[in-house]
């Protein structure tokens, strides 16, 4: 078990140096938020630029995870630990955003499932899952 923990030590050191840089004097302490915004915009781009419906749902998921990450970033208190009560620890990270995001993750999966079910249904009705082809079929039917 300890071997597994040790194997991740370099990664954790990498994270610690990133964190030190983020709160240090060289950056304004907002770098984490900016990376999250970058992720968010990647998801947004996938949603609006792609015609494939499954791809759009993946984009929504990417967007969702980055919003979650944003909340968790706000909940972090420097020097704090995970919000589990223990002897000798007085500084905890904020548990409230964690609760909200737990709920949001589960609701997110429920909406993903519903969206994918609709995709399957659309495929049965139109025999395609590309947005533009569905529009073409609809125009054909209107004529």
């Amino acid at each position: 078990m300890q071997g597994i923990v040790d194997a991740f030590q370099p990664l954790y050191d990498l994270w610690l140096s990133f964190e030190a840089f983020m709160v240090g004097p060289a950056s304004p302490g907002l770098l984490g938020y900016w990376i999250v915004i970058g992720l968010m915009m990647t998801g947004f781009y996938i949603v609006i630029a792609h015609d494939n419906l499954v791809k759009k749902i993946v984009g929504l998921n990417v967007f969702q995870v980055s919003v979650f990450l944003f909340y968790i970033l706000m909940a972090k208190v420097s020097g704090g630990t995970a919000p589990i009560l223990a002897e000798g620890i007085s500084v905890y990270s904020n548990p409230l955003p964690h609760v909200l995001i737990l709920t949001a993750i589960v609701v997110g999966v429920a909406t993903t499932a519903l969206g994918l079910a609709l995709v399957v249904r659309i495929r049965n009705a139109y025999n395609t899952i590309e947005d533009d082809e569905i529009l073409a079929v609809e125009e054909e039917e209107d004529r």
């Binding site: 995970a82 964690h98 993750i105």
Partner: peptide, 13 residues
């Protein structure tokens, strides 16, 4: 999430 102290969120995710 684990490195940001949100362990419950991490295992749900």
């Amino acid at each position: 999430y684990v490195v940001l102290d949100a362990v419950d969120v991490a295992f749900t995710e």
